[in-house]
Design a protein around this nucleic acid. Structure first.
Length: 440
RNA sequence: GCGGGGAUGGCCCAGUGGUACGGCGGCAGCCUGCUAAGCUGUUUCUCUAUGAGAGCGAGGGUUCGAAUCCCUCUCCCCGCGCCA
């Protein structure tokens, strides 16, 4: 949620931010239309309530001195009738106004490229050595703006869909039989690889000052709606039928909401949390995309970075959490690029977002494996998470970035580390966690 | 699931129908060489605001007037039941 006062003081800043994202003017226009009426209702109500309070006090005195308060009571009654009418109207107007308010997006950071469509995300940097099939070279060069380091390969690596079947490390058909598309049974060494990745990522982030937290896997509507936006509800979330509960789509949500309505001691900040949880996603907006394999699935595990910090530090922390994931991916020997996501592809919450995209040699392209967002005070305001300062309580800034999402990283490993024998090599850093060096 | 107890400002706590007491902490000021102590004020949200209003877990109700009485709900604690 944005700051109402700031919106009233400088509407043009918000109009401009919305426009760059491809939003219309209707949310902000709607807000102002209703806010004006709301403020006028508040003024009138306050005056009427004062009348009632004064009359009531008078009645108290009359009763004490043994007089007859009936006349004054009648006056209060008529004031009260007026008050309830205005109150009903105020409630209505306020609800409608706040609906508009909740749709107004965060202010963009100045460095966000103004465009729409993922193809217009701005290339930031590349790291690693990509194995590139010759037919993909042109695409690779263009996606890395000539900065990509690569090794040409003669044949396109096998897709992970084929590999998992050949090596008998996942069963998608039977998962489809019992749960539908985009579900999977993992088997044998792929199960251990998943656990190894989780443990590796937790250790990696713990060493960088993050506290590991395993949150509830379901959340109530109210805290969840204060953590994310309506689009996420529509597209990502599973609802539990008989309870007011939603399956979490990411531990960002319970971790963020964990501190809602709290006032933090400034000495506690920054708070770095590594959330570890399964993530449940409907993938409602993804029909037809990545329909095979385990690249895009309805549940997976994710180790997530989340930071609560002082506002003046958040842009530094945004770079820090981005670097953390880059270092982690690099330690797994995976080539990747970082892009600055353009204005039209950001969520309402994001002031700025980097995507980290790994190279998938069989697909011949980069695909998103992590998403690093600075939500500034937008999320903290609706969650009401503040910290004490000498000048009063201020909202913290919140940031989040994927540390590691298991299914995507497994696909990444399967597609990047195929050997000539058709086995999968385990990256060096992971071997202490898997206990084996390849999947055969 | 059943029974009992509870939720009051940043924190602690008083308050059985008359408009929220007090303490701690924070901040500002005063004061005595310094410090400590002490004294005074302040402390949440809303309203174009020298003034007002709201706010006692949430939402309803009774009343001229509700932290206080009634109803529904949420969460916490204790006991019982059930349970991996």
């Amino acid at each position: 949620m944005i700051d109402v006062r700031s919106l009233r003081n400088s509407p043009s800043e918000y109009y401009s931010s919305a426009e760059k994202r491809g939003f219309g003017r209707e949310e902000i226009d709607g807000f102002f239309r209703l806010d004006e009426e709301w403020r006028s209702l508040v003024r009138n109500l306050n005056a009427l309530r004062k009348q009632r309070n004064d009359f009531s006090a008078e009645i108290g005195k009359i009763v004490k001195s043994g007089g007859d308060p009936e006349e004054t009571k009648k006056k209060v009654k008529s004031v009260n009738d007026e008050i309830s009418k205005l109150e009903a109207r105020q409630k209505e107007v306020e609800k409608e106004r706040d609906q508009f308010l909740s749709l107004i997006p965060n202010i963009l950071h100045e460095s966000v490229p103004v465009a729409s469509g993922d193809e217009n995300n701005k290339f930031v940097r590349f790291s690693g050595t990509a194995r590139v099939f010759k037919e993909d070279l042109e695409n690779f060069r263009s996606l890395t703006e000539g900065n990509g380091i690569f090794e040409l390969i003669e044949k396109r690596p096998e897709s992970h869909v084929d590999v998992i079947q050949r090596l008998n490390i996942a069963d998608l058909e039977r998962a489809a039989k019992i749960s539908g598309a985009r579900f999977y049974f993992l088997k044998n060494r792929l199960v251990k690889l998943e656990l190894a990745l989780i443990n590796y990522a937790i250790d990696f982030l713990s060493q960088r000052g993050f506290t590991a937290v395993s949150p509830p896997f379901m959340m109530k509507y109210e805290p969840l709606s204060r953590t994310t936006d309506i689009d996420t509800f529509r597209e990502a979330l599973y609802k539990i039928e008989d309870d007011d509960l939603y399956m979490i789509a990411t531990s960002e949500h319970p971790i963020g909401a964990m501190l809602m309505d709290e006032i933090l001691d400034p000495h506690e900040l920054p708070i770095r949390v590594a959330g570890i949880s399964p993530c449940f996603r409907r993938e409602a907006g993804a029909h037809g995309k990545d329909t095979k394999g385990i690249f895009r699935v309805h549940n997976f595990y994710k180790v997530e970075q989340f930071i609560f910090c002082r506002p003046e530090e958040s842009w530094d922390f945004h770079e820090e959490i981005t670097k953390n994931t880059e270092d982690l991916i690099r330690s797994l020997e995976i080539p990747y690029r970082v892009v600055n996501v353009c204005s039209g592809e950001l969520s309402r919450l994001n002031s700025k977002k980097y995507d980290i995209e790994a190279w998938f040699p069989s697909q011949g392209t980069f695909r998103e494996v992590a998403s690093s967002s600075n939500n500034t005070d937008y999320q903290a305001r609706s969650l009401n998470i503040r910290y004490r300062t000498p000048d009063g309580n201020r909202y913290v800034h919140t940031l989040n970035n994927t540390g590691l999402a298991t299914t995507r990283m497994m696909v990444c490993i399967i597609e990047n580390f195929q050997t000539d024998q058709g086995t999968i090599r385990i990256p060096e850093a992971l071997i202490p966690y898997t206990g084996f060096e390849e999947i055969t």
